[in-house]
Design a protein around this nucleic acid. Structure first.
Lengths: 213, 213
DNA sequence: GTCTATATTCTGATAGAC
DNA sequence: GTCTATCAGAATATAGAC
């Protein structure tokens, strides 16, 4: 790898770290310059603007996460097995990509100020996450014929994940509670009449449990 | 109300609005000055620093929210009735105080940069919300003897709420789905062996439903 | 308490030699 | 591609008259 590419990577590493810690607005070019050892002019040569750095950082984070995500066709013979696999995948992705999530949430919050390119990146990131989650949930609960239920369960899952990311700002040891998520997803599936046989305690016959509403 | 107090309020109004929209770092004193019509020196006279504005804004938002929250002793004769009341209260608070929530999340995210005073305010805000939610949930499900379950259900509720706040950054029309929350809370309570009789469909006798784990 | 004017530092961004 | 040097403007914050 030539020096140019190495510098480019160093800028993205440092910039991503700083932006995820302090937010976009509070991260200055001079901070990135000081932390990476490269002069500001080099930074501007690689990326045309501060916004350009953010877009590149976010794009790299998105690609890294999506490449790390397993296929959304979840393996397993019954709902219980597939659900456990899915929950492990979600937990794993959540633990391994905290900076990406924080970058996404950080700019998501103030996207009205962001450039068109940055906003587009943010949406592409989020849409990809939603699509993966939806496909996975659909596979877990066999919802090919009920896309609206898959969508609801996916949004619920992402909401729990981002809510947990928020909780982590206040209590850094917080982890995604997959036990809670498991109970909640099963109850929601059941609530929509989705059969969840094979799950311990949920193998009730036709007159199944509904939780009101 | 004298002119000084009116100016002070105007600064808090404008500053709160701008900070919740753009975040703390991206909100400048000159923006607040321009939007409120008051010179920067007046702003500095009322609050000693930019940080002082943020602390005052957040303190006011916290007090307003806490005053608006109903008593955490939820009225109702059975779980179903109390739960519905509680969910309505949460939804209402969530709808009516979006700026407070955004301020809280906004600084929560970068609190390591924040002053001690600002960080203290952020934690006090969050702790008060958590305490109210915990007390309410405890009242709804009669969990006086099982505080750890009340804590878990409260954190779950707040995670759903903040996850929904995040979702709203991307899709502004998003509302807190109390239907989902109802199903999930009942399932979690049931999962912990908490009796949830009185709820349609959940009036199963002792050998009640467990969703595995 | 509010105003005008200003000090000082830092910002994003560029010029141009190498 | 990287460096030194620098620009124009905006940032936080203050001085001091009224």
């Amino acid at each position: 790898m030539d020096r140019g590419a190495r510098s480019r990577d160093a800028i993205l590493d440092t910039g991503g770290e700083l932006m995820s810690r302090h937010g976009y607005a509070a991260t200055s070019i001079s901070m990135i310059s000081a932390a990476s050892g490269l002069p500001t002019s080099s930074i501007y040569w690689h990326f045309r603007s501060k916004d350009g750095i953010y877009v590149a950082v976010l794009e790299r984070a998105r690609i890294a996460l999506l490449e790390a995500l397993p296929p959304s066709e979840v393996p397993g013979t019954d709902v219980a097995e597939r659900l456990d696999t899915f929950l492990r995948e979600v937990e794993d992705a959540f633990q391994r990509h905290p900076r990406g999530v924080k970058l996404l949430l950080g700019l998501g919050m103030v996207q009205q100020d962001a450039s068109a390119a940055a906003a587009a990146e943010v949406y592409q990131y989020r849409d990809a996450l939603l699509a993966w989650t939806r496909d996975s949930v659909s596979s877990v609960f066999e919802l090919r014929n009920r896309p609206e239920v898959a969508d609801e369960l996916a949004r619920f899952t992402l909401r729990m994940a981002s809510g947990t990311a928020v909780a982590r700002w206040f209590e850094p040891d917080t982890v995604l509670d997959t036990g809670q998520l498991r109970v909640a997803l099963l109850a929601l599936a059941d609530h929509h009449g989705v059969p969840v046989r094979g799950v311990p305690g949920e193998d009730a016959p036709p007159g199944h449990i509904t939780t009101g509403e």
